[in-house]
């Protein structure tokens, strides 16, 4: 073997390591869409559902239930769009979408996310909703950082940004919605655009 063979070996090793351990089909467009849904959802919430001055948001009241439903729809449509765009991209690149790496990615993503979601629901039950936005951002950020080991790209940095934003949000009570829009809306759109730009290159 001469040194070109060794070089070929090294390239092959790198290629196999990436292919076997990292999920590469996440689409940048899905980030942009998730951001748009989040901003639209927040706008609806702000103009129609939030308590006006002097009003109180009642736990399990009509507006409260609508808010929760709105939140779940934003999440649902984001996931649906991501699933649709990602399968499309995977098909184009001839990659399998459901393999061991994807499973690990999902499990590692869901552990912090579900923990956070349940925690927020438990706190809601005892009328503590002041920190919901902050907690959503922090746990979502942790989920991204945790899942980033299994993807190519810079999801990690999106995660760090969400965590930092969540912590700042905790310092300023009463501005939850603003930070929520910044994190789930603006950051998603910025991150998605960067990803999308890189994909097109």
């Amino acid at each position: 073997m001469d040194s070109t063979d060794y070089l070929k070996d090294i390239n092959e090793i790198k290629n196999l390591m990436n292919k076997s351990s990292r999920f590469i089909s996440l689409s940048g467009l899905s980030g942009i869409f998730a951001g748009i849904y989040a901003i639209a959802g927040a706008a609806i919430a702000y103009f129609f559902l939030f308590p006006k001055d002097g009003e109180v948001l009642f736990l399990y009241g009509r507006n409260f239930m609508l808010l929760v439903a709105l939140l779940f729809s934003v999440a649902f449509f984001s996931v649906l769009t991501a699933y649709f765009l990602t399968t499309r991209k995977a098909k184009r690149n001839n990659e399998k979408i459901w393999d061991q790496t994807t499973r690990r990615l999902l499990i590692n993503f869901l552990i912090p996310l579900v923990t956070g979601g349940l925690y927020i629901l438990i706190k809601l039950n005892s009328q503590h909703y002041g920190l919901s936005a902050s907690l959503m951002l922090i746990f979502y950020g942790l989920a991204l950082v945790n899942a980033s080991k299994y993807t190519i790209g810079n999801v990690k940095y999106l995660g760090y940004a969400q965590i930092i934003l969540g912590l700042i949000c905790a310092i300023f009570p009463g501005y939850g919605l603003v930070f929520w829009v910044l994190g789930f809306g603006v950051l998603h759109i910025i991150y998605g655009s960067i990803m999308h730009y890189n994909e097109q290159k």
């Binding site: 073997m1 070996d9 092959e12 090793i13 196999l16 390591m17 076997s20 351990s21 393999d99 061991q100």
Partner: peptide, 26 residues
Amino acid sequence: DHRIRLGIMSILVVNEDADFNRLKEL
């Protein structure tokens, strides 16, 4: 000093584990 053995090790050092079919496919 063989492509396949090197390949098997490359996959296993970055994954906790892999089953036979997964190795075969990769």
